[in-house]
Amino acid sequence: MTKVTMKINGKEVSGEVEGRTLLATFLREDLHMTGTHIGCDTSQCGACVVHVNGKAVKSCTMFAAEAEGADVATIEGQANADGSLNVIQQAFQDHHGLQCGFCTPGMVMSAAALLKENPKPTESEVRAYLEGNICRCTGYHNIVKAIMAASGQDVSAIAAE
């Protein structure tokens, strides 16, 4: 066991981990931050996406020890300071961008990373960026729409209901 220390959603956190402890496992099992989900074991579904030093990564495909000293952001830290939904989260609710909610944390974290890199993405840029985030419920329509809306684009022409 080795000690790791990292900042999670702005708060310094320490824990004892094995070499094989994944960042996702550290979050879920050790810190009881269960918003980050695990939907596959081949690094494809993206339910586990968090940000490490500002970059979207799959927390199921990174060891906790590798996050030593890092700044980690998870879904639990995304809401506004007053607890209200942030712009992306609010757009997901406004445009019905989630159903069962399981892929949603990863979707929101990927969307946040996308909009940081590309503040006004086109539809095809959004779709391309979501290559590593699988949703089985929504057919992606409302996710793509929500992300475009969150970027401040007018989505009223996109079929609503």
């Binding site: 990564v57 990927s110 990373a113 590593g132 985030n133």
Partner: peptide, 9 residues
Amino acid sequence: IGDPAVRNR
């Protein structure tokens, strides 16, 4: 290669 999160690692 892969997807954005994979490319970051």
